Amino acid sequence: MDQCVKCPEQQYANTEQDHCLHKAVSFLAYDDPLGMSLVCTALCFSVLTAVVLGVFVKHRDTPIVKANNRCLSYILLIGLIFRFLCSLLFIGHPSTATCVLQQTTFGVVFTMAVSTVLAKTITVLLAFKVTAPGRRMRQWLLSGVPNSIIPICSLIQLVLCGIWLGTSPPFIDTDAHTEHGHIILVCNKGSVTAFYCVLGYLGTLALMSFTVAFLARNLPDTFNEAKFLTFSMLVFCSVWVTFLPVYHSTKGKIMVAMEVFSILASSAGLLGCIFVPKCYIILFRPEKNSLKGLKDTILYTHTHTHTHAHTERQS
């Protein structure tokens, strides 16, 4: 042709560049190998978490379950199930409903789980700080103040999500330039500021949980899970600190897949670090999950600590 004509945005030029072809619509589909593997992983972890919840309910009257606040453990396990399942909202053909539900469900469910970890850690600290019946900390512990952290933190996140949806909610967007010959359907975040406020609030909660768990890490492991909580929050924070730069350096389906992978990895970190050691003792070492086992462990810990301190004084 004497004069070249640029193809419309929804089309692209063929190899001979003498005809325009329609671009194929692309998104992270369920039948895509990557999407299918992420769906299977999410469902497997959801079932595994449900099995762990069943184990805890069945052995609810044993010392290891009772010593770590059964109610908070149940809430955290239910929250983890929803966290694994919420990743399914990111897979499949995007719609206005799924775009809105993706971020709000993610923010609220993750806030509930992280605030539960914070409540569990604060409960551990208060339990070991209570030395006299008249102390205020004892009143806090008995009145269930740590448990109120969960609804308060979740309500704040709900308010942030409400402001986000009221000002500039997420919507379906198209990316016609990242992949040649394809139009990628993606969920636009809408207000980037609101998105980072939700994410920043969640990160602040996670950092607080890690800090409190780190301060309580040296408390006796017989009665609490301080070290497990510390390691779980370290894994959680590491996953999301790694995710953010990778997320911003990818486009299209890979960007969505990275977000889903981070949701699954951080949730699996909490499940593995906090609950797997307890399930191992409940199912395979029942002799340790008894009052006699607890007393023997306490005696060993006390003797070992006393010997270690005596050796340090001599040296």
Rank of each mutant, 00 (worst) to 15 (best):
A265H: 09
L88K: 03
T98C: 06
L126F: 11
H22D: 13
C153P: 00
F45L: 15
Y30K: 08
V130K: 01
M137I: 06
D61I: 01
P245I: 11
N68K: 06
S290F: 11
H248G: 09
S148N: 11
H177C: 09
L34V: 15
D32G: 07
L89K: 09
S262A: 15
D296K: 14
K227Y: 01
S315Y: 13
I298W: 10
V246F: 12
T116I: 03
D175E: 02
H182G: 00
L299D: 11
Q11N: 08
L85T: 07
H177Y: 13
M1W: 14
L28D: 02
A257V: 08
V57P: 02
C279S: 06
A13D: 05
G92D: 10
N147T: 06
T174D: 04
P170G: 08
M112V: 15
D2C: 14
V57Q: 10
V114M: 03
Q103I: 06
F90A: 02
C4W: 15
F223N: 05
K23E: 07
Q10L: 06
A127D: 04
R217M: 07
T305M: 14
M112W: 03
D2A: 12
Y196N: 08
P286A: 02
I184C: 04
R285K: 15
H308R: 12
N68R: 11
L205K: 03
A132K: 14
V114I: 14
V25L: 04
V260S: 03
K189P: 00
S209L: 07
L28H: 03
T307K: 10
I282H: 00
Y280K: 11
R70G: 04
K6C: 02
V117I: 08
S232H: 08
Q314G: 01
C71Y: 10
E287N: 12
S290N: 07
L299Q: 14
D173M: 12
R135F: 07
R136V: 11
L207I: 08
R83A: 13
T222Y: 01
T62Q: 13
T305P: 00
S154W: 02
T303K: 14
A67I: 04
L294I: 09
V192D: 09
I91E: 01
L77Q: 10
Q3T: 13
C4H: 10
T49N: 13
K292Y: 01
Q102V: 00
N289Y: 11
P169V: 06
Y300I: 02
L77T: 05
C153H: 02
C71S: 13
V246W: 06
I184H: 01
V192I: 13
Y300Q: 13
I81S: 02
H310L: 12
V124C: 11
G162Y: 09
I274M: 08
F228C: 00
Y280A: 10
H306T: 12
M233V: 12
N14E: 07
L89R: 09
A67R: 08
C7R: 03
P8D: 05
V100F: 14
V109M: 08
E259M: 10
K66R: 15
L21R: 09
E259R: 07
D61Q: 14
E225K: 04
T178D: 05
K66I: 07
H306G: 00
P133T: 03
H248I: 15
W240H: 12
A132G: 07
G269M: 05
G35H: 06
S209E: 06
M258Q: 10
V276Y: 07
C20F: 09
K227F: 08
S115W: 06
N68T: 06
P8V: 00
D31C: 10
